[in-house]
Design a protein around this nucleic acid. Sequence first.
RNA 1: GGCGGUGUAGCCAAGAGGUUAAGGCAGGGGUCUGCAAAACCCCGAUACGGCGGUUCGAAUCCGCCCGCCGCCUCCA
Length: 455
Amino acid sequence: MKVFNTLTGQKEDFHPRNRVVTMYVCGITAYDESHIGHAMTYIIFDVIKRYLGFKGHEVRHIQNFTDIDDKIIERANQLGVAPAELAREYSDQYFANMDALNVARADIYPRATEEIPKVIEIIQGLLAKGYAYESEGSVYFRVRNFPDYGRLSRRNLSEMIPKASTYEEKKEYPLDFALWKASKPGEPFWESSWGKGRPGWHIECSAMALKYLGDTIDIHGGGQDLVFPHHENEIAQSESFTRETPFVRYWLHSGLMQQDKQKMSKSTGNLVSIKDALGRFSSDAIRLFILSSHYRNPLTYSEEALEANERGAERLRSALTHRAKADEKAAMLNPEPFEHRFIEAMDDDFNTPQAIAVLFELTREINRSAEDCANITEAQLTLLKLGGILGLTLKEKAQPTPDAETFINLLASTRDDLRQNQQWQLADKIRSGLADLGVTLEDTHQGTRWKYNKI
RNA sequence: GGCGGUGUAGCCAAGAGGUUAAGGCAGGGGUCUGCAAAACCCCGAUACGGCGGUUCGAAUCCGCCCGCCGCCUCCA
């Protein structure tokens, strides 16, 4: 299995350090609704985790919530609520969204505000080792003391100096970054030996990764926009603190969701919320859309693309609805070659577009074999299993209530009687009436079947 | 400006030196059907932004040019 490591810029063979694969994924800053770009990142890492599981690895997955920072405070003040309350509300919404997208939960979701002791411990260690300095109640990291600074993002300090736009007098050097920020009056704060304040953004991830996963972790993931400065800073502070190299063995970064030829982003308001998308499309369609392009490439959101993938999802689902003929002499569709090709695709840096292509080829083969009355049970199970690695449920978007189902069945069988008597007009009236209510009737050789299409 | 990425059929998107350039959606033709729907079969890029070069052979490697995007400030 090969994965593309941002640090080396190459595909490398993946070998975890120990039996359990350790994986840290940067989570959200909880100050606003999650958008479809977040869905992209977390669906991608969900698939990576599921695939590692499929390959027999046990995965320990940690993902943080940033629940204290400038934007949270600013937003909370605007709304007149406590920052902690705001963060809690949006992290709850995040869970609801991810559950609806069938994103499996991480093992632990640490929150910055609950990891202050570890943060302080690291900052103290960095101060003691001379990698950090205090200034007016804040603490900064001395990037010039870390020779490897810039390696992950392929840039060097000398190129960046003139570009550093925000020069704060409190810093020794413009690119030094805050480990601890002194709090202003009225802001939430935690006590520390250098005064009241709160953690800088980057330090929480180091603290959580080191605390829950150890000094060297296998996989660290996040969106490509985090490469610099966030992940660069994480490396600097973590390796300086532990004196262990590398902090992360495989850096994986997902491409960003675009809309109107621009990055989708909270700060620009250029976004589609996950909730809105889920109101219009099934989670399978959303996942199919996101996974139909390679995870490291950007993807442009469009309604048309989602609609196309909804139809694709429907096609996969419907291959599962054929009833197997219990004829022992029937030929069996062997799904093994498909599974083999699926694995081959996924082993190559999680090539989900190719893996999905295999799923569609298997689907066609199932449909064809079903017409030939071959045994397709194994093939259907394989489709379900492989789809599951991509987090596809392949379930209908919604089911009618049991009551409604009874009525639908009654109408369908009445219509069949009418068809028997060639009462086409009445039969068609029932069919179109049901269609208006979201029920599609299909007359097959095995009788009439129906689908409920409402989301 | 620096660094990174990207440009493949109407749309989305794989492929990264060599048999017929995956797959999905849309479209056309057909089979089935009372008609539909679904499904299946057949069809569609002599062509991979442009121009050169390397090679027996390039969408795939190299050079230049053009377009688009990201990061360099908070961001998944």
